[in-house]
């Protein structure tokens, strides 16, 4: 019964949308990479560097939106590294991705310790504040959930539409999807698979970093260690769950976030007190694995995902 009470509160849905926002950015970023044929396991570390660099820029006096830009650039830089190693050189996407994750998070932690050597509690910035959308925010339940959020959340939802339109309604999107399905056909059109894939990885990594920046600049107001906490890996599961389609993947992120918000609230009920809190914290990871299992039969994996392309080779 408590579940129904929770489901009918506006704060629950607002929390679900808030939790989904960073996942939407990063999931869309990963989706763009994979649609072009590159698995980007750098996602976890790129989210860390995004969370750190955006926050640090604002802490040093930059405006919030400039901080988002800094985070995006930092993500794109690591994306460039990933793309260079995996696309023209065709190195193992698993190994490079894990290496980039390690490098990006170590660089973030190193820079954090270097710039703030003595702090015990991390300093705070003034994060993005919720902006009420007049009229729409008055709708019961849905209003406060979707229309009283920070600008970054609105941006996340706008991006779902933008990525869908670009992927399915533009020549660029067609070329990008072809690079992930049948790279030889792209070359036959006189386009460069290398350029398309590198571009996709760089842009996708930028989005992942903005997802990370959401954590320090919208959800919380400071940077701390382990704050990304596997969200990147969850986003990889969400891409599979969404069958490599932006709308479905975003819906998956929302559904996932709703479960996450629900488990936090269930912990505070009498029922929740009977179960160890660690069980609740496991829920997101278990859900991700379940999502992968459920979709395993139906998933339409991009045919050339993880297949390096070398011009002139058959």
């Amino acid at each position: 019964m408590e579940i129904f009470d929770i489901l009918l509160t506006a704060s629950f849905w607002a929390a679900a949308v808030r939790i989904a926002s960073p996942l939407i950015f990063a999931t869309l970023g990963e989706l763009i990479c994979e649609r072009a044929g590159v698995l980007n396991l750098g996602i976890e570390g790129i989210m860390v560097i995004g969370a750190f660099s955006g926050w640090m820029a604002v802490y040093l006096g930059a405006p919030l939106w400039a901080g988002v830009g800094v985070a995006m650039l930092a993500g794109m830089l690591f994306g460039l590294l990933h793309a260079t190693l995996t696309v023209p050189f065709g190195l193992s996407q698993h190994v490079v991705g894990l290496g980039v994750t390690l490098l990006a998070s170590a660089v973030a932690y190193f820079a954090y310790r270097l710039s703030l050597p003595e702090v015990t509690s991390p300093p705070k910035i003034v994060p993005f504040q919720p902006v009420e959308i007049p009229g729409l925010s008055q709708i019961p339940l849905i209003g406060p959930a979707f229309f009283n959020q920070t600008p970054l959340t609105y941006l996340a939802f706008v991006l779902i539409a933008v990525v869908s339109i670009v992927l399915y309604r533009t020549p660029l999107g067609l070329a990008l999807r072809a690079a992930g399905e049948n790279p030889a056909s792209v070359e036959a059109q006189g386009l460069s698979v290398t350029a398309i894939r590198m571009g996709a990885v760089i842009v996708g990594s930028g989005l992942m970093a903005v997802g990370g920046a959401f954590l320090t600049m919208s959800a919380f107001s400071s940077f701390f260690f382990e704050m990304v906490n596997g969200r990147g890996w969850i986003c990889i599961a969400l891409v599979v769950f969404g069958a490599w389609r932006p709308g479905k993947a975003a819906l998956g992120a929302l559904l996932f976030a709703a479960f996450d918000a629900l488990q936090v609230r269930l912990q505070q009920t009498p029922l929740g007190a009977l179960v160890p809190y660690q069980v609740f914290l496991m829920v997101p990871y278990i859900l991700s694995i379940l999502a992968l299992v459920l979709m395993s039969r139906r998933a339409e994996v991009p045919a050339a995902l993880m297949v390096p392309f070398n011009k002139g080779e058959r």
Binding site: L41, I236, V240, P276, I289
Partner: peptide, 29 residues
């Protein structure tokens, strides 16, 4: 899961790390 259902093991093994650490935390408390 990989051999029977084709579920990618990279993500599942990674996610298991987080589940296991929480399990250890539960055991120790």
């Amino acid at each position: 899961l990989k051999t029977r259902l084709g579920v990618d093991e990279v993500v599942t093994t990674l996610l298991f790390n987080f589940i296991m650490l929480l399990f250890v935390s539960y055991l120790l408390e």
